Simulated scan of single mutants.
Amino acid sequence: MTSATLASENLLEIRNLKKYFGKGSHPVRAVDDVSFDIRKGETLGLVGESGSGKSTIGRLLTRLVDPTGGAMSYQAQGSDAPPQDLAQLSQSQFRPLRSKVQIIFQDPYASLNPRMRIREVLAEALDTHGLAKGAARKPRIEQLLQQVGLRPEHAERFPHEFSGGQRQRIGIARALAVEPQFIVADEPLSALDVSIQAQVVNLLGELKEQLGLTLLFISHDLDVVEYLCDRVVVLYLGRVMEIAPTQALYASPQHPYTRALLAAAPIPDPAQRRVVPLLQGDLPSPANPPSGCVFRTRCPLAEERCASADMQLREVQPGHWHACWRNDL
């Protein structure tokens, strides 16, 4: 599918996206032939084990790393201009779009310059894109801090003077400073205490509704994904295993890996027994992935044909796609 066919309800269409690290006959296939859509105004969850390629996809979409192949067709909201393939743009060509495509990083401390006051952190983002100049600068910074639940006087503090949750709010404010349409939230809760995570989740949900944002929410916390996201993409070893509306995915997962992933989530009731056995073994090396279905070496339902088939996504129910032979799960 080319960028000219971008559906009107989609902000981004990712087609056959690849990112290989290293050269030679066995490069690390961090992302390998990934395709999915991100609809305007939705929160799309991206889940999978560590090493499945979630964060790499987030960095590809924001062009913090360059793709090896594939297309990322972007249609700006409210624009009549033809869609642009982000994968084909040079860094200088992508610069005008960078204000529309932002990222919230996983570590809220490492992503902030410890020598800069918060006022300077936010001003740097505004200066880069020529926003809120002159007398409008201070009110804009105060507005951003208030939007994320901080006070105007916090602008004069340094990052080390804040808690982890407050630093993540600053990271969110920095992403919002340039008035984006699309934000990649790359595991924004993993470095926070459990008591703070709910506050940040609710903040993201409120800002999405207030500002009309589109979110790609990358997380390993399946409970948060179920609460926050409209649809979910399940990754394994750089490949998409399943795509579905959140309610359908959690109620009736269609891929063996998704079933195992959901079964691995903690159960609050100690009397409740697991129905699906947990996965055995480790994730294979992305430098030497299994042939055919990449999940077959850990799949309890693997068949002989799984080793040779090119397992592509197919629609099993309206809007519900999975990459598996079986339909009887």
Score class of each variant (00 low, 15 high):
Gln197Arg: 15
Leu215Thr: 01
Val232Met: 07
Asp193Gln: 01
Thr246Tyr: 13
Leu176His: 12
Pro188Ala: 02
Leu261Glu: 09
Asn202Cys: 08
Ala263Gln: 01
Pro188Cys: 05
Ala271Leu: 11
Leu262Asn: 02
Ser190Ala: 15
Leu228Val: 14
Thr246Gln: 11
Arg231Thr: 07
Leu176Val: 09
Ile243Asp: 02
Val224Gln: 13
Leu222His: 08
Leu213Tyr: 09
Pro266Trp: 00
Leu222Glu: 10
Ala271Arg: 13
Tyr257Arg: 05
Leu262His: 02
Val225Ser: 09
Gln210Ile: 03
Ser219Lys: 12
Leu249Trp: 13
Ser190Arg: 04
Leu189Thr: 15
Arg259Phe: 02
Pro286His: 01
Ala260Arg: 02
Ile183Leu: 12
Val194Arg: 04
Arg273Phe: 00
Gln280Ile: 05
Leu192Arg: 14
Arg273Pro: 03
Arg174Met: 07
Ala265Val: 08
Ser190His: 03
Ala185Pro: 04
Asp221Pro: 06
Pro188Met: 01
Asp193Phe: 00
Val240Met: 05
Val240Pro: 00
Asp230Met: 08
Glu179Gln: 14
Ala185Phe: 14
Arg273Val: 13
Glu187Gly: 14
Val184His: 06
Arg231Glu: 10
Ser252His: 15
Leu216His: 01
Ala175Phe: 02
Asp269Asn: 15
Val200Met: 08
Val200Leu: 10
Ile218Cys: 02
Lys208Cys: 03
Arg174Trp: 09
Tyr257Asn: 08
Leu215Gln: 06
Gly212Glu: 12
Ala173Ser: 04
Thr258Pro: 11
Pro266Lys: 00
Val232His: 05
Leu213His: 03
Gln247Trp: 00
Ile267Phe: 02
Arg274Ser: 13
Val201Tyr: 12
Pro286Cys: 04
Val200Ala: 05
Leu192Ile: 13
Thr258Trp: 09
Gly281Lys: 00
Thr246Asn: 12
Arg273Gln: 15
Val233Asn: 05
Tyr250Asn: 10
Asp269Ala: 05
Ala287Lys: 09
Ile196Pro: 02
Ala173Lys: 12
Glu209Cys: 00
Thr214Gly: 10
Gln254Asn: 09
Pro277Gln: 11
Ala265Cys: 01
Ser252Met: 06
Ala175Ser: 15
Arg273His: 13
Ile243Met: 01
Tyr236Val: 09
Gln210Asn: 11
Tyr257Ala: 05
Ala191Lys: 06
Pro268Lys: 06
Val225Lys: 06
Tyr227Trp: 15
Glu206Trp: 00
Leu261Met: 05
Leu215Phe: 15
Ala248Arg: 14
Leu228Tyr: 05
Val201Pro: 13
Lys208Arg: 15
Gly238Gln: 03
Ile218Tyr: 10
Leu249Ala: 14
Glu242Ala: 10
Cys229Asp: 12
His220Ser: 01
Leu237Asn: 06
